[in-house]
Simulated scan of single mutants.
Amino acid sequence: MTQHSLQGRHDDEVLWFQRRTFLQGAAAFTAMGGFGAALAQARSNIVELRGDALINGQRLSSNQTIQTGDTLQTGPQSTLTFVLGNAAFHVRQNSSLTLERGPTLSAVSILRLLSGAVGSAWGKGSLRQIVTPTLTAGIRGTGVYTEIFGDQGGRSYFCNCYGVVDMSAGRDQVTSESSYHQAFWGEVAPKDGRMLTPAKAINHTDEEIEYLAKLIDQRTAWQILGKKGVKDGKGYMEEKPGQMHPAQTIGKW
């Protein structure tokens, strides 16, 4: 189990993948062929629903199917894990998000996070986005963690756990290429002249992202390389003199 740093979260929130109900649900989901088989057989694409959640304002049950165009909300002490197309999602408690439709019914074009937090793994495909009140992330095929800090005025946190992501906040833009957790803050107001600033790796674990990747038959960068880097939020496998976080290269305005 990797070390993790928590800010406003608790251990049980990042250890959901250890629950028997999730492990059983994930094993059954993958053994039966994943999302494609679930779609063909008209089965649910929910891997685990714990507690209470709403879909389009109505109570969600574990045998329902989540589609693009849906709005999801989780209540206190509730979580939701599901697969849609070639992307897997774990929604933390007290979260609200919408899934905007892409080229097909099962392709998410925009995940719009309104509150709370969500971890996700995305297979390759046409450009998709994760949008929060203070940042936009263009997804190419990656594993990420996104959270909105309501107690900080809606400041957004985004970690590109592996892969390539086009980041923007205000007039700040940068391409994030990460092998091991490159994290950003989307600021509510300019901080030292920037709206996109460096962050540490917080509130999520390697194992969470690994399990989400496995649900879409994918492996993380560190699993492929067989090693892990320095979990300092810079995103590199090896720490070298002079390495800068990409957000530090953005010019002030």
Rank of each mutant, 00 (worst) to 15 (best):
G33A: 09
G193A: 03
H4T: 15
Q41F: 08
G229F: 08
G36S: 11
L127D: 11
N63D: 15
E147R: 07
Q64L: 12
A213E: 13
Q3S: 15
A247S: 10
E238M: 08
Q248N: 10
Q18H: 13
T220G: 04
T81G: 08
S109C: 01
Q64E: 15
T21C: 03
Q152Y: 06
E187L: 08
P103W: 03
T68H: 07
M244G: 02
R101A: 12
Q243P: 07
W253H: 14
A42T: 10
E239H: 12
G150F: 00
T30R: 14
R9M: 13
P190S: 04
A27G: 13
W185L: 04
R59F: 11
A201Y: 00
F149Y: 15
L99M: 09
R92Q: 13
G226Q: 00
Q77P: 07
T146D: 09
Y180Q: 00
A28S: 15
I66R: 04
E239P: 01
I216Y: 04
A247Y: 08
H181R: 02
L114E: 10
V164G: 00
Q18S: 11
V47C: 10
K228N: 14
G186E: 07
I55H: 05
E208H: 05
G226F: 00
T21R: 11
S156C: 15
F29H: 11
R128I: 06
R50E: 13
R171Y: 06
A201V: 03
R20S: 14
Q173A: 09
L84W: 04
T136F: 02
T21L: 13
M244I: 06
I250K: 03
T249V: 08
D151W: 08
A28M: 09
H90F: 07
L113E: 01
W16L: 11
I209R: 04
I139L: 09
A28D: 15
T205S: 14
V164S: 06
A28F: 11
L60D: 03
R9V: 05
H204I: 05
Q182A: 00
T68W: 08
G123C: 06
S109P: 02
L114I: 12
G233C: 00
T74K: 01
Q73R: 11
T65S: 14
G153T: 07
K191A: 10
D217K: 10
I148F: 04
G25F: 07
T21D: 15
F158M: 03
P103R: 01
Y211E: 15
N45M: 04
S96W: 02
